[in-house]
């Protein structure tokens, strides 16, 4: 299998719905918590080590062939915000569509049928990576990077932030993305042996609270 499949899956233009989600950045911008690139960096760093770590571990475990149904339930337990569960399943369903069109496979069809309204996005991402011939670390990299690139591009639109500054934030976070991926892949290996309880459960209270507030706004630019 081709390593370049990783570039296809990780490409921000991969048509899987991510462009309509801010990863909590819209709520943080409105709350005055992100006003420039420093705030964006602090936001992304926190998201990476919490939601990003959990997502990356779920994706890595799915890429290793762990039962998607068990992983999906574990994602539910680690996503107490209803608004975030809804967003994750919506994105999972959109990613499933894109992945099935890109890498047709029985394995994806089976998960699509099990979750007609969408499995959690990181679980679908891991299965997609698997059928694309990629490994657990590739899946974890996609997921961890998405956890920061999504908010960064949303903040470029929300604050008219200089896109070079936003890209600089992502570059500065790269060593931490490496570490989070390492931890995620290690946890995924433990899941294979000991079950989904070995998944990390790092939580970010402001993301959870902000997501519920955002979902109740009558007018917003992003779906989450």
């Amino acid at each position: 299998m081709s390593r370049a499949a990783l570039l296809v899956l990780a490409d921000g233009r991969f048509p899987a719905g991510g462009h309509a989600h801010s990863g909590g950045a819209e709520a943080a911008v409105k709350g005055g918590l992100i006003t420039g690139s420093d705030g964006l960096e602090a936001f992304c760093r926190g998201r990476l080590h919490t939601a990003g770590l959990v997502s990356a571990a779920l994706a890595a475990a799915a890429a290793l062939g762990v039962d998607p149904v068990a992983l999906d339930a574990a994602a539910d337990a680690r996503t107490p915000s209803l608004a975030l569960r809804v967003a994750s399943r919506k994105l999972g369903r959109q990613l499933m569509r894109a992945a099935r069109a890109t890498w047709p496979s029985r394995e994806l069809d089976v998960v699509a049928r099990e979750f007609p309204k969408g499995a959690h996005q990181p679980v679908v991402l891991g299965v997609a990576a698997r059928v694309a011939g990629l490994g657990a670390d590739d899946a974890a990299y996609c997921s961890a990077y998405e956890s920061v690139s999504g908010p960064a591009s949303a903040v470029v639109r929300l604050l008219s932030l200089d896109p070079f500054d936003a890209t600089g934030v992502l570059a500065r976070l790269a060593p931490e993305v490496d570490r989070v991926v390492g931890a995620a892949v290690e946890a995924a290996g433990e899941v294979v042996v000991g079950g989904v309880d070995a998944l990390p459960a790092a939580s970010a209270p402001l993301l959870e609270i902000g997501a519920e507030a955002h979902a109740a706004w009558p007018v917003r630019l992003f779906a989450s």
Binding site: R13, P15, A16, G17, G18, H19, R97
Partner: peptide, 11 residues
């Protein structure tokens, strides 16, 4: 949403 990434509209 209507051209480059139509996934949400298809859903």
């Amino acid at each position: 949403a209507i051209r480059d990434d139509i996934s949400a509209n298809l859903e």
